[in-house]
Simulated assay, not measured.
Amino acid sequence: MVQASISQKNLFGTGKELDLSIDNSRVTKTARIRYFNPYHTPNGVSRGFYLSFIDIDAGEAGLVDYINETTSLGVNYRFPLSEHNAFGFSFGPDRVKLQSTSETPPEIDAYIKVHPDDWLLKTTANWTHDTRDSILYPTRGFYAIISGEAGLPASDVEYYKAGIRGDIYIPFVYDIAFRVGGDMGYGAAYGDTKLFPFYKNYYAGGPNSVRGYKARSLGPEDSGLTPRPLGGNRKLTGTAEILIPFFGAETQDKRFALFVDGGMVFGPNEDVELNELRYAAGIGLNWYSPVGPLQLSYAVPLNDEPEDDIEKFQFTFGRSFR
């Protein structure tokens, strides 16, 4: 695996940012360049440009087996609406090239034969509301984001996705906090497109989702000889946890968590049934280490089925906490 990145946060003393990164691993090969101007206008509007190439071997990630090469180019803006509210959007073309393998299941192979090389005129938009007292370790406040994504009518594939995610932090004593969070998403095709593109599916299971279950394992599976997670066009997950700091520590960079997670994803031909949600309870450690965010958890599934992939101990590094 090869990873490299260069980041300049104050380009030529202007306050503008330039990021370059490459990643060559067994699952993904990526190259990205991003330019960002946080002071595009005097009233705080920011603007950025991006160019990226991503090559994903989904089978190596334990998902339905296919290869996805996506090239993206676009511009994004962020508008501050008030002290606690902001609106952002992006716009640009994506080229999506799909390739079957010898292990690709029939339903995915049939889709790829119809859509082997598509152009998407993609746009995204989001509204955020944030009253948390800290970005890294909040103990009080509310965070919410409503987001959308669409392949516009000029695209080879016309689709849309909409989601809402939120967290409420309630303080107790001695910097102990209670958090309740939820995440819902829905996607569908429209216009001349009949099927929602499977590579835009939602997934559930694993860290930052439903701990105690293997990452991305919950929900529909493909029809292959060895079924693999396919994801779904609808997602529902939630969590409740008590966040406990390290008492006596000089810095507030780590917390224990006692949690209960729940969730599931559903396919387009399935009913959303709450009794199908999977639950798990456990204990975790969140630590902003000197080299990046680190999360450890041990969870016990509460209502798993024989076909579920269980993974009680989980570890993630380099990804921000929920």
Results as ranks from 00 to 15, higher is better:
Ser25Thr: 15
Arg26Thr: 13
Arg26Trp: 06
Arg26His: 07
Arg26Cys: 05
Val27Asp: 04
Val27Trp: 06
Thr28His: 05
Thr28Phe: 05
Lys29Trp: 09
Lys29His: 12
Thr30Asn: 09
Thr30Lys: 11
Ala31Ser: 10
Ala31Gly: 11
Ala31Met: 08
Ala31Val: 01
Arg32Tyr: 04
Arg32Leu: 10
Arg32Lys: 15
Ile33Pro: 02
Ile33Lys: 08
Arg34Met: 09
Arg34Asn: 15
Arg34Asp: 14
Tyr35Gln: 08
Tyr35Glu: 07
Tyr35Phe: 15
Phe36Ser: 12
Phe36Asp: 13
Asn37Ala: 06
Tyr39Val: 08
Tyr39Leu: 10
Tyr39Phe: 11
Tyr39Ile: 06
His40Gly: 13
His40Trp: 15
His40Ala: 15
His40Ser: 14
Pro42Thr: 08
Pro42Ala: 02
Pro42Ser: 02
Asn43Lys: 10
Gly44Phe: 01
Gly44Pro: 03
Gly44Ile: 04
Val45His: 02
Val45Phe: 07
Val45Pro: 01
Val45Ile: 15
Ser46Arg: 02
Ser46Glu: 04
Ser46Ile: 04
Arg47Cys: 12
Gly48Met: 08
Gly48Pro: 10
Gly48Asp: 11
Gly48Cys: 08
Gly48Arg: 05
Phe49Thr: 13
Phe49Met: 13
Phe49His: 13
Phe49Ser: 11
Phe49Pro: 07
Tyr50Ala: 10
Tyr50Trp: 12
Ser52Ile: 03
Ser52His: 09
Ser52Pro: 10
Phe53Gly: 09
Phe53Thr: 09
Phe53Asp: 09
Phe53Leu: 12
Ile54Asp: 15
Ile54Gln: 14
Ile54Thr: 15
Ile54Trp: 10
Ile54Met: 10
Asp55Gly: 02
Asp55Cys: 06
Asp55Tyr: 04
Ile56Leu: 11
Asp57Arg: 06
Ala58Trp: 05
Ala58Gly: 00
Ala58His: 10
Gly59Ala: 03
Gly59Gln: 01
Glu60Trp: 06
Glu60Ile: 01
Ala61Tyr: 03
Ala61Asp: 08
Ala61Phe: 00
Gly62Ala: 00
Gly62Thr: 00
Gly62Ser: 01
Gly62Leu: 07
Leu63Gln: 11
Asp65Phe: 03
Asp65Tyr: 01
Asp65Glu: 07
Tyr66Gly: 08
Ile67Phe: 05
Ile67Gln: 14
Ile67Glu: 11
Ile67Tyr: 08
Asn68Trp: 04
Glu69Ala: 05
Glu69Gln: 15
Glu69Ser: 08
Thr70Gly: 03
Thr70Tyr: 01
Thr71Glu: 12
Ser72His: 10
Ser72Leu: 13
Leu73Gln: 13
Val75Leu: 13
Asn76Trp: 13
Asn76Arg: 11
Asn76Lys: 10
Tyr77Pro: 02
Arg78His: 07
Arg78Val: 14
Phe79Pro: 03
Phe79Asp: 00
Phe79Tyr: 14
Pro80Gln: 03
Pro80Asp: 05
Pro80Trp: 00
Pro80Ser: 03
Leu81Asp: 07
Leu81Ile: 14
Leu81Tyr: 08
Leu81Thr: 06
Ser82His: 09
Ser82Met: 08
Glu83Met: 09
Glu83Ile: 07
Glu83Thr: 12
His84Phe: 13
His84Met: 05
